[in-house]
């Protein structure tokens, strides 16, 4: 497949702080990459490299086959960007924002912009600063999509917004992906959103990619289970495939990577019984890898 964005072994530090360590990612055309990770894990720093706002210390970034830090104009012309920060000029009115964007983007589609504004019930004659947070987010989305960029970068697009605005934003993104060839990078704390939208998921942790695979594969490879001992077991069970475990005494709940057969064998070896075993949700995988059990083997 044709890859739109490619990061190869990107390392970047700010002073003595290592912000990204050997990050490699690839986003193919027509797919959605979900970036998840705790605050300060490096998600936004990764996006800033894609947008060309930061240059890697080592490694390479390629977007549409170009280096975004060296050729920002042709790269940014093809990226629609929406962030959680409110970056719209508050003194502008909606229709002025449209004209302003039109000036920058030759591909601006006024009909589409009007259609989005109508759908969002945006008041194009009100100053952006007087709009609600939700309406400003919708205005930002209109501005980011109306030039029909082939790549859409969303940095926490729905953080702090109510469920209706979130739903609006998601539906428009779904429709945009349905149009041939649109590629999306979505960084979000709302794992349910990532779950619904992402083809591939990268978990960023301390500036590194801790986990990176197709979402369906991740779910199929990970098992959430409860282990039960006949008698209380006071030392934490450690076994092959274990990612994280919590509990005490007779009952332990674990996230494990591998087949159900492996899990059963390992449980048998420990003298425990596996009950309540099912494929793990993205939420459980996220929590498990964010706080892996010390000593767990992968």
């Amino acid at each position: 497949m044709n890859s739109i964005v490619q990061l190869d072994h990107v390392t970047r530090s700010f002073g003595s702080k290592l912000a990204l360590n050997d990050v490699s990612l690839k986003v193919d055309q027509g797919t959605v990459l979900g970036l998840v990770g705790e605050n300060g894990s490096g998600k936004t720093t990764i996006l800033k490299h894609v947008l060309g706002l930061l240059k890697p210390n080592t490694g390479t970034v390629s977007v549409f086959g170009m280096d975004p830090a060296r050729q920002p104009v042709p790269v940014l012309a093809q990226i629609g960007y929406l962030s959680e920060e409110d970056i719209l000029p508050g003194w502008m009115r909606g229709y002025e924002l449209q004209r302003y964007m039109q000036g920058f983007y030759p591909t601006w589609d006024q009909e589409y912009a009007d259609q989005l504004a109508k759908e969002f019930r945006l008041d194009l004659y009100a100053k952006l600063s007087t709009l609600s947070k939700g309406q400003r987010a919708r205005a930002g989305l209109m501005a980011a999509l109306a030039y029909r960029p082939p790549l859409i970068v969303l940095d926490e697009p729905s953080s702090g917004l109510d469920p209706i605005v979130r739903h609006d934003i998601l539906s428009v993104i779904v429709r945009t992906i349905a149009e041939e060839g649109r590629t999306v990078i979505l960084s979000s704390h709302h794992l349910a959103e990532v779950d619904r939208l992402a083809d591939n998921v990268a978990l960023v942790k301390n500036g590194e990619i801790a986990l990176y695979d197709a979402l369906d594969t991740l779910k199929e490879e990970h098992i959430t289970c409860t282990l039960v001992y006949e008698k209380a077991n006071f030392s934490m069970p450690i076994f092959k495939g274990l990612v994280s475990i919590s509990g005490s005494g007779r009952e332990w709940t674990a996230l494990s990577k591998g087949t159900p057969e492996l899990l059963r064998e390992e449980a048998e070896r420990l003298g425990a019984r596996v009950i309540d075993q099912r494929s793990a949700s993205l939420d459980e995988i996220f929590v498990g890898y964010s706080r892996p059990t010390h000593g767990a083997s992968r």
Partner: peptide, 15 residues
């Protein structure tokens, strides 16, 4: 159609 169901369920059309 795929895109109609995707929009209705708010899930990735590829899915």
């Amino acid at each position: 159609p795929i895109r109609v169901l995707a929009e209705q369920l708010v899930v990735n059309p590829n899915t």
